[in-house]
Design a protein around this nucleic acid. Sequence first.
DNA 1: TTGTAAGCGTTATCAC
DNA 2: GTGATAACGCTTACAA
Lengths: 336, 336
Amino acid sequence: MAELKQVEIARLAGVSQATVSRVLKGDPQVNEAMRERVLAVVQELGYVPDARAQSLRSQRTRLLGLVIHRAPEALAGDPFFSTLIATIVEQAAKHEYHLCVDTARTARTQRAIYEELLRTRRVDGLILVESESHDKRIERLSREGFPFVLIGRYEPEDAIASVDNDNIGAAFMATDYLIRSGRRRVAYIGGPAGLTVTRDRLQGYKRALESHGIDYDASLIAFAEFNSRSMASAMTDLLSLPTPPDAVLALDDLIAVSAMREAKRQGRRVPDDIAFIGFNDSPLCQYVEPSLTSVAVEIPQLARRATEMLVELVEGRAPMPKRQIVPARLVKRESA
Amino acid sequence: MAELKQVEIARLAGVSQATVSRVLKGDPQVNEAMRERVLAVVQELGYVPDARAQSLRSQRTRLLGLVIHRAPEALAGDPFFSTLIATIVEQAAKHEYHLCVDTARTARTQRAIYEELLRTRRVDGLILVESESHDKRIERLSREGFPFVLIGRYEPEDAIASVDNDNIGAAFMATDYLIRSGRRRVAYIGGPAGLTVTRDRLQGYKRALESHGIDYDASLIAFAEFNSRSMASAMTDLLSLPTPPDAVLALDDLIAVSAMREAKRQGRRVPDDIAFIGFNDSPLCQYVEPSLTSVAVEIPQLARRATEMLVELVEGRAPMPKRQIVPARLVKRESA
DNA sequence: TTGTAAGCGTTATCAC
DNA sequence: GTGATAACGCTTACAA
């Protein structure tokens, strides 16, 4: 098996090794008889080219990278990443690319991973998620001209290839819906404060308040880490306000569900006393009680477009347009 | 950047390229002065070796593979795979390996992926999950002597490296618990019938019935695909039996929750009329109502051990023992 | 149209 | 100890 290389095929087919390579590349210049002779031997021996050698020679690994900045625990119940990964893998496969997934939490390991993946040329390009306002990774990758696509937003928006939800619009829509249903004290629970998505949705929320002439009240804003303790405690804080909220818009379904559970634990009736809306429209929404109203953000769509863009970049084509927006929609259920 | 190779470092440090390689490999034979000179240049230019060249030369890619046989939709809410992937990535990183994730559903793409991943030597080894009774992949990989570790069970058990829950024992424990709490018609909803895990847990279930002198009733056994329609309809069938079940043991939490939801929809009270137990102890369990009793199967543990074993195999050591069992425990909540 | 040969950037085996 | 040099298995000018 280790001996099965092109020279061996060439020897058996009575041609040169270069011809074997040409046949396998589908070079139209090769004579039909030779092609068949070579292919016959290839078939018979089940020869497949060595990806390592191809990578070195062609300077392409046909591997895309995805780095996730979360601990395994924080990933566990989260449907965002499983859908994301599965969809990227599937889409990449259509172009004969594979996906290399890494996780990095600390700044140190993050740096190490980026070094490792791109300077070593282990992957041909990177898909980034969960960007922050001044994102070192993005600055670095742009500077070095490395192919990457951001799922999210980064200023200036047209400088880098990115795919995103209309997060501001989506949060506006959800908040507007809450206010129209008669809610007056709508709280917002974001994820970590640095994340662009946390900020964008906060902005949409603010605009909706504004459009209804409701004053912004900073005490109604909370930020949670991606673990259930933090999510619940954000809700506890909100509930202990002198005038607690009568609705909550949460950054994702997991946060919404944790918060809702905490509210129920404290005797609040949902949606009568307090309404909840999450993001992602994950399967979870249907299972909780009351079922969770959620903004569906089309993760597969996001993943597919990002992958397509990255493949284009990697193969030297310029993706058009550089920034793509995937619409979101509100899926109404019992919680709001 | 593309020009940054060992020859360049060598030129600047005034040594031979071979010496640069030695310094980077930590070869103790090199003179201290030279080592420092080389390292200084390496530091300054931020040189990192090219993984592609290393792969070709060393015949190692430092990439492990994981192939998942599920559609993206079926992965979406499932905490099993996100935890699995994240933990493998983390553990692999400790040995400086990366993870390549692929998904394959059809037999054709499955075959293609195995070809692609291993014959091409794109990865150094594979972690398999969701094995079936006569698994082509396993037969093939064993035959070709390719390094792989199974998360699951395969006969003969000591022929291949595997890590597994004690599924028979765990299902026994859960079923036994249901019977001891007074349940007499315990149903079992598995996943696809071919999966080893589906069969193993069914066996544990049967043994528990036996130990209590309860007759096995085949009409209480259902198999579901990993999509919510199939999960719910399995439950509908069970509920329309002349004597419906008063308890359900499900293959995983998602199935349990879908089934429980269906039962509630049909007016059954949980756990009064019917009890539910799932598997995996996913975050979901706490969020549903009533909260779901579940068998915690220590996915991180499974993933870590599998990764360790695979690294050993890949690096030519024989993992000991070849088969490892990770214990499971019952996490009692409201549903049973 | 096919063969020869020069790399791709490392690692490792030789001599020196 | 260190420096040439030969692989690793492939792609692709260039030569024939």
